[in-house]
Nucleic acid binder design. Sequence first.
DNA 1: AGCTAAGTATACGTTAACGTCAACTAAGGG
DNA 2: CCCTTAGTTGACGTTAACGTATACTTAGCT
Lengths: 127, 127
Amino acid sequence: MTQEHLFSISELAAMFDISSRTIRYYEEVGLLSSENRESLTKQRTYTNHERRRLKLILRGKKLGFSLQEIKEMIDLYESNPEGEVEKKRIIEFADRKLEEIEEQIVQLEMLKADILAHKEKYIDKKG
Amino acid sequence: MTQEHLFSISELAAMFDISSRTIRYYEEVGLLSSENRESLTKQRTYTNHERRRLKLILRGKKLGFSLQEIKEMIDLYESNPEGEVEKKRIIEFADRKLEEIEEQIVQLEMLKADILAHKEKYIDKKG
DNA sequence: AGCTAAGTATACGTTAACGTCAACTAAGGG
DNA sequence: CCCTTAGTTGACGTTAACGTATACTTAGCT
């Protein structure tokens, strides 16, 4: 494996235009890992793996999910289910989320249609 | 115009499975009107118009918008722009919102694809 | 008349998701 | 060696969106 580039907390923060505090908070609630400190300085370092995780977190936030919900979804991504029962549980969770997402898309399409209709109403009406 | 049915606050709350407190709060922040009290009792009454407004509010919430954003959008629905400048401002706002919504839909589709991929990974892998 | 159910206003409490500030440490430059 | 820069761990502050409790009023029974 090739040497992966390591990022500092402020580098990572700058990449996504968030604060270092936010990253530490995500770690506090278990959304990002706190391992891989620089042994001497005790400063946090991040790999591309954590960078991708953070990207997923922020996407979830933009979509209106709570950090708790995001945590459950990311845990889904990284779970390695042992046995049929676990696998079934995970698949059911995935299906529930997929339904939620479908519903959100439908609602967004409706909102979009509403706004479009009102916009055109104002364009048509003589000012 | 036919007599419109009037709802009490708890009737309205029950319809949408929310609390009366929530409705009063929406009024407090200007999302619902506080007019049309029953003259003697001073109790709040609601028409179908307010019921529709509340439905819009709750849709917005489900989509992850803040009450402030929802207020701006609903104001858009009910605004009656005077003059070209106002109309232009409103159309621009609508266009910004439409872009946001498009972006959200795109992101939701990506999330959906991600979850689907992971789900199928667990289905394929032998347990 | 007395009681209950439903509503009102006021106000303090709560949770999530951070912001901000204080006190400290470690690395690197001049 | 001193100073600046970047990071660390607490810990308290803040805002949105309500929840909850308290004290009071009114309508409708019985």
